[in-house]
């Protein structure tokens, strides 16, 4: 219940005067002090965006936009996406064998909430968050649906956008590739050696057989 008059009075008018003084100080300073000038005139001026800023995912390709796409259509991001805005169809050849690349990769901008979970769960370093934010369009349906053509961006773009992350990824991929190449070479060498050994064995056997015959 209200008991009537407030209990903690100060000198009448003092508080109002102090408040006005604060406002006046702020107003005057807003003409010359940099930290008081807080607005910029968009779109002529732009506020600097942070290098970590994330908005809408993109797909990375190396060299060739079609063949170099890192995505293997594994659908992990599709499953983990919180608003379920990713749609992937796996590309198959005429025998129905998987080609390990997406035929369709759609992201709906109107549903995407830019959380970045897709880029986090991707095991193939394929999907990353973009920094582009001027994505508005007057086409409400087609314009907001991003297909492979608009989602694919080069590894150089990634490097330019997030140098630290991209170079780390590149180094890792390179190491992996080298490892793979080394493994493949080792495998090849082993196969070669095996074949040679077999050949030698067969020859020896043949020689033995000949000996017995004689």
């Amino acid at each position: 219940m209200k008991t009537g008059k407030p209990t903690r009075w100060v000198l009448p008018g003092l508080g109002l005067f102090q408040g006005l003084a604060v406002t006046g100080k702020n107003m005057v300073q807003s003409f010359y002090k940099k930290e008081r000038m807080t607005t910029v005139q968009y779109p002529e001026e732009r506020a600097p965006i942070s290098p970590n800023f994330r908005n809408f995912p993109f797909l990375v390709y190396d060299k060739d936009p079609k063949a170099g796409l890192r995505c293997t259509a594994c659908s992990i991001c599709e499953k983990e996406c919180p608003p379920q805005c990713i749609y992937i169809v796996l590309d198959r050849d005429e025998n129905g064998k998987s080609l390990k690349r997406p035929k369709v990769f759609d992201i709906d901008l109107s549903v995407c909430m830019n959380c970045g979970i897709c880029s986090e769960v991707c095991p193939f370093d394929s999907i990353y968050m973009d920094g582009e934010y001027e994505l508005s369009t007057d086409d409400r349906f087609g314009g907001l649906l991003f297909g492979l053509d608009r989602l694919s961006k080069s590894a150089e773009y990634h490097m330019k956008l997030r140098p630290e992350q991209a170079s780390e990824v590149m180094a890792r991929r390179k190491a992996d590739e080298e490892k793979k190449a080394a493994a493949a070479a080792a495998k090849l060498a082993k196969a070669k050696a095996d074949a040679e050994a077999k050949k030698a064995e067969a020859e020896a056997k043949a020689a033995e057989g000949k000996g017995e015959d004689a």
Partner: peptide, 15 residues
């Protein structure tokens, strides 16, 4: 619970 199918629909092609 089964969600009703008459909510304001937004034609997203992927579900």
């Amino acid at each position: 619970y089964v969600a009703p199918d008459d909510y304001e629909y937004e034609p997203t092609p992927h579900d």
